[in-house]
Design a protein around this nucleic acid. Structure first.
Lengths: 187, 187
DNA sequence: GTCTATACCGCGATAGAC
DNA sequence: GTCTATCGCGGTATAGAC
């Protein structure tokens, strides 16, 4: 694999694990098996490399979510499938995690890919809810944008509760609790 | 105010803002207007001080939540009141934020107060849901533990979405979306 | 493109004076 | 109890050789 690629992937992993403040150029170089000079040749500094890594992680999150949400089935089936797909719950969300980092939130260049990822996700979820509403699965009164935000929040919050507990259980409870609350098909 | 008290409160603020890795003893001393020797006289080190600060924040979170959840009103009214009480949404949750910190999650001493806080919160919310179920407000099939986890997750996830967007809007959408989904009183 | 050397600063803590 | 001095280490980057 080329150096640039190794640098980006190593940065993705470290940002996921330790966040932006907790990730040093030196640690990235070690993980990527790249030298100091090599890293600074390809990237202006930590921030620029982080930006590339965050964009990559955002793209991967979108692809994975879209894969689930574009399957066949009812809206609830697709949403439920997305929520329950295999996840490394205790590692948390690689994109959502970054919102805890003040340096990421404060820097427009770094926050942008995070913002875009969740904007896309909420829009995509709202489409699925709207489809369910159109075909009579959901009542006309169900607001797609609100429901989409709730679904995305349960996931992100589920990670928080799981990491707090040191167990995947609260995540699974939260997800199942949400699925329970989704309106049943009004056949 | 006494030195110890100033140290704890300053640490609470810094942990909220910058997390554990992002908070240095020097920054704490500056914020608390305490000297180096003073801090190390009262606390063995950064970890011990952080533990005291996290315990304090957890106690404050529990008190604030209990205040809302113990009011008069239906279960949905109390839950809704808790979700919609005034919050500094863009600052996020001072306790939930810590789950992003690998050093906190890895250290049992630091994770314990975080775990206990959310365990308490989920239990308290489950009580409210169970009360709503007993008095006929909620159907018998509604699972209190699941629903409680979902409510707590929506809050924590709402913060994540809001910070990602740089706006409180996704938080408010997620909360309202959840309230919409809660069963209406079967009168 | 990648290497090594160098720089400056802040981190987290200890030591001992007052 | 609080102060200043000191320590070893790592963060983040620049410079210039190869």
């Amino acid at each position: 694999m080329e150096t640039v690629e190794r640098l980006i992937r190593s940065t993705q992993e470290l940002l996921w694990e330790r966040g932006y403040v907790g990730t040093s150029p030196k640690a990235i170089q070690r993980a990527a098996e790249a030298g100091q000079g090599s890293m600074y040749h390809h990237f202006a500094g930590k921030a620029e490399l982080a930006k590339a890594a965050i964009e990559r992680s955002g793209a991967e999150l979108r692809a994975a979510a879209d894969e689930q949400l574009s399957r066949d089935g009812s809206a609830t089936e697709r949403i439920s499938g997305y929520l329950k797909r295999e996840r490394d719950v205790l590692r948390g969300c690689r994109v959502g995690r970054l919102t805890a980092d003040p340096d990421v939130v404060a820097d427009p260049e770094l926050r942008a890919p995070v913002a875009e990822t969740f904007a896309w996700l909420r829009t995509r979820l709202a489409e699925v809810v709207a489809e369910g509403r159109r075909n009579g699965e959901y009542p006309a009164g169900l607001d797609p944008d609100r429901t989409a935000a709730t679904i995305a929040a349960v996931l992100q919050g589920g990670y928080v509760l799981a990491r707090a507990a040191g167990s995947t259980e609260p995540f699974e409870l939260a997800v199942q609790g949400l699925v329970d609350l989704l309106p049943e098909a009004t056949k």
